[in-house]
Every structure is written in structure tokens, then in C-alpha cells.
Computed example of a mutant assay.
Amino acid sequence: MKRSVLLLTLALTPTAVAQTLTLKHDEGTTTVKKNPQRVVVMDEEALGWMFALGVGERVVGLASSYLSPTDVSGGKLKPAVLKEGFYTRGKLNNPSFVGSWTAPNLETILALKPDLIVRLTWDGNQNYDKLSKIAPTVGYEEGSQGFWQKGLRDLARVFGKQVQAEQIIKEAADVNRSNARKLQAAGVFRKYDKVVVLAPFSGGNTWAYSRVRLIDDLLALGFKNGLKIGNATLGIGAQINDEALLGIDKKTLVVLFPPGGQYNGADAFLKTPVGQRLKDQSVVYTPEAFSPYSGPLTSIRNSNEVTRLILDKLK
């Protein structure tokens, strides 16, 4: 009996309790072991947070909607794929491919024995309960205000990287402020005071983004939002018709932000009557291969590259 009481007392000591922390996230409240060594990320957004904190080598499993069967061999990402685009932004130690964010391979994830699972989420996203049975799982809603800053700061607490998190959040904001001054000095806002972000998909559908996906960085640069969107799917944007596109005025900069790979419909869009009408006020911004839509590393690239494209267009 005394031994049992002693063990219980030890288990409740501050030292033992301090090995975990509790995170309130968009899918609930989760107790997480500090400084986890084996992490599964369910999308490139979460991978970007790991890279920003310098702990990418702890990613043992990666889910992605970008990857195809030709990118994977023996359940692992091929070495050549890890040398492309966004995957070069941090250190990855040959992670296993664990499906997509909507269709995770639960058996593969279970076999990896992760300490933590991190993912984006939205209304109707599934599998949180199943993932939580495998390991502590935290999810962040893409359309919510400041979601990537929240996710990054939570992971920083888990890994003891709070100072690094604040530094890179500040760096992203500083880059936007610096580029805003460049655009102001070049007279960009006299020509274009508003901006819209359009994602032309192969097959003819075009989406306009109202939150998160590039548009937030453009608003931080000093532009006003040039297109009002009603009900936004997933809180980030909506499909838009030609009539609405033809209503875009000449003082609105159009940034074409096509999806990656086989879904890129930018060239086809510019050949349409609507694309021809908007061509003179458009720039095409192509993200890195395998790039997330948001996060500090993405925000910095977005700001620098789009600023360069705009300044080049006005020369």
C-alpha cells in the first residue's frame, strides 16, 4: 500500500506534470508530450511550421494532396522529390507518405508510432477521432483569423522554441512592411489601389480568394480587397463566374495564383475572352512546388516575389 501511494505521489510531482502541456486548438483540447521526437504532419502547412521552428527532421510521416504515386517508393518520398521546391526549406529525414489530408492511411500512421499529429481542418473534415486514438492530435482551421500564427506558437511551446517563433512571425511582418514602402515609392498604389487573387484551375473553373491564400499578404502590402465574395467555401474563397470577373475595374491589380501541377490553368485562362480583357492588369505568381498556401516561410516568399512581379510590370 505504501509503495502504491509513493508511486502515485511521484506521478503527480511538478517534474512529471511539466513533461506535458495542454493545447486548446480548433478541434478541441489536447494534452501533448513536450519535445516530441516523432511527428506526423497531415499537410504542407503543418510541415512549414515545423521547418520554421527548425525541427523538420522530426517529421516521420507526411500527408499531401500534391504527391502522386510516382513521387513515392516503398512507402517513402523519393530522395529526388525531397530536393524539390518547398521540401528543401528544412531538413527532412526520409518521411513516410501517409496519404492525403482527406484520406489518411491510418495503418501507416499507427505503424510510425508518432508522439504528435498536426493538421489543418475545416467544417466537415473527418478522421480527427481516429487520429487522436493513434497519438495526440491538434488541428487548426485554415479560414480562422491568425490561424497559422496560432498553430506556430502552439508548436513552439511544445518544442520550447517560443523565441524562434516570435522572431519569424516578426520577420514576415517586417518583410511586408519593407515591400509596402517599395510599392509606395514606385507609385504602384496610384495605378492599382485594389487587388484580387484568382486561382484558375485547369478545366475552366476560377476561384477568388478572400482570406489566407496570398490575399492576406497583398492586403498587408497596402492594397484594398477589390472583390467582395459572398459565402466563402472553407472560409477562404469561392468559385467566381465570368460576369463578376468582367466587372473588375482598371484600378484593380489581378494576381493569378494558379494551383500546382496538373491543376494549373493560368495559361488557358489568359487565352479566354475574360483573360484577354484582364491581361494588361494581371501578373502571374507561381508558388514553389509542394508549397503550402500560408505560413511564415510562404508569407515571406509571397511578399518578395509578388512585389518583384508588380515592380517589373510597372517598369
Rank of each mutant, 00 (worst) to 15 (best):
N205L: 13
N205W: 12
N205S: 15
T206Q: 13
T206V: 14
T206E: 14
A208L: 12
A208H: 11
Y209T: 06
Y209Q: 08
S210R: 13
S210W: 04
R211C: 02
V212Q: 07
V212A: 00
R213E: 02
R213V: 10
L214Y: 06
I215T: 00
I215S: 04
I215N: 03
D216K: 00
L218D: 01
L219H: 10
L219Y: 05
A220P: 01
A220R: 14
L221K: 09
L221E: 07
G222V: 07
G222A: 10
G222Q: 12
K224E: 15
K224D: 12
K224M: 04
G226A: 09
L227F: 08
L227G: 08
K228D: 13
K228R: 13
K228L: 09
G230F: 02
G230S: 03
G230Y: 02
G230M: 00
G230A: 05
N231R: 06
N231W: 01
N231F: 04
A232K: 07
T233W: 07
L234F: 11
G235C: 00
I236P: 04
G237F: 09
A238T: 08
A238C: 04
Q239W: 02
Q239G: 11
N241Y: 09
N241R: 12
D242M: 08
D242I: 07
E243F: 01
L245G: 03
L245C: 05
L245P: 03
L245I: 03
G247N: 11
I248D: 05
I248W: 04
I248C: 05
D249F: 05
K250V: 10
K250P: 05
K250L: 09
K251I: 09
K251V: 10
